[in-house]
Design a protein around this nucleic acid. Sequence first.
RNA 1: GGCGGCAUGGCCAAACGGUAAGGCAUAGGUUUGCAAAACCUUGAUUCUCGGUUCGAUUCCGAGUGCCGCCUCCA
Length: 465
Amino acid sequence: MAIHFYNTLTRARELFEPLEPGKIRMYTCGPTVYNFPHIGNFRAFLFEDLLRRHLKYRGYTVTQVMNLTDIDDKIIRMCRETGESLQSLTGRYKAAFFEDLDTLGGERAEHYPAATDHIPEIVTLIKTLRQKGHTYDADGSVYFRLNTFPGYGKLSHFDIDQLKTGASGRVADDEYATEDARDFALWKAYVEDDGEIFWETELGKGRPGWHIECSSMSMKYLGESFDIHCGGIDNMFPHHENEIAQSEAATGRPFVKYWLHSAHLFVDGRKMAKSLGNFYTLRDLLEKGHDPVAIRWVLIATHYRQPNNFTFDALEAATQSVRRIKDFRLRLKAITGTGSGLDQEIAACEKTFGDSLDDDLNISGALAAVFDFVRDVNRLVDRNEVGIDGARGATALLDRLHAVTGVFPSGETDQAPQAILDLVLERQRARREKNFSRADEIRDILAQDGWVVEDTPDGPRVKRN
RNA sequence: GGCGGCAUGGCCAAACGGUAAGGCAUAGGUUUGCAAAACCUUGAUUCUCGGUUCGAUUCCGAGUGCCGCCUCCA
């Protein structure tokens, strides 16, 4: 089955055909590095991670760019309030972002350009826009003149004349210099409150607007036209709309072929908000002792265009699911005899898995295929019908699917230390001598150290609790 | 005021006109020294009301509820 994606631009499910055969260039809106990312941020980043992994699984060469926004109003305000330098502040949160990304098993993108490292490129792009008559200056700032770009609104499907200015109650005072309130800043003139944060450029003393960084950096690393652009649904307007305007006005070419937007994460059915007390960073969940793989599971297990309702019950269910897969892999590992090679089961699982993800990243179908496989194989193992070839094949399959989803780890790292293994041996001796009270006592001791011992026909199995 | 999304068994969640996947939890069973794991069995007519259709969770309309965007929030 060919890959299909739902394209926000057309509001339709479309056959996916990259601009260049075999190669995919994608841009994914990254974090603003002024805080620890919350799990809602990671819902979007992990959707993008799943996307890139699946495309690679399908044999494409993927070039992904994720920007790091390290200059904006909030960052400046924080620097002003704390006295910390911009570089120091954003450096800390960049590091935190990568640390959290690693914890969640996110693959690294090919490029992580930061806005402040691309001031020259930004200035060049603004100059091009100015040269083509798409800008005007006001009070030292440079604005994009919206009515010079006829296609404005084609992504968000907003009728530009019906936008209710200031409906969000967030229009800043310094926006009033625009001729039309809907025009947006490309370059913002320096103001007193900016302190030490400014760049002296041909455009004057100031700093870049928000949207322009994504246009200039995406085009620098991916070219004037590229395949996929992702982001949270909230970025569709105005951010992505403005990116299209800037980019296409500058180049005269189509900017992006497929726009993919992820829906929000809710917590207990409500929008995540600090005021509601349901706001979580990854670190909050880790402190509560939750498994990063289970967290990843919960964040990707809902289709990316559906609102994902995060609950601790769901996280617990995901934890159990991860455990089930790990147990299954341990069980495969213990198989030594001859028997079925599982060729049919493996092929069926992988086909359904791949077909599901090809269908606009239907993760639920993909996970269901794996669970069906686990159940089918477990049944065969119960009947002693699976041989070592089958076990190896099944393990290899899970390795392949883990490379795509990141939620089927082997649990190999849970290797018990010698002291624990000694206790297990002692317990075996006790059991052989029918000294079950001693055996149960040892099991309790192991449990206290966080290890579970299970008796199987092939001997005891130790695993992390 | 404009635009848009969502509503499926206790919880999470698929299905894009053909008669409701999967996971977790629950209950019963097989197995086990006891457990654990595994396996088997167990449960929904899909928010409400209309309409289109031989047939609707799926399409259309109205309503109810929750949510998002409308200039810098993934």
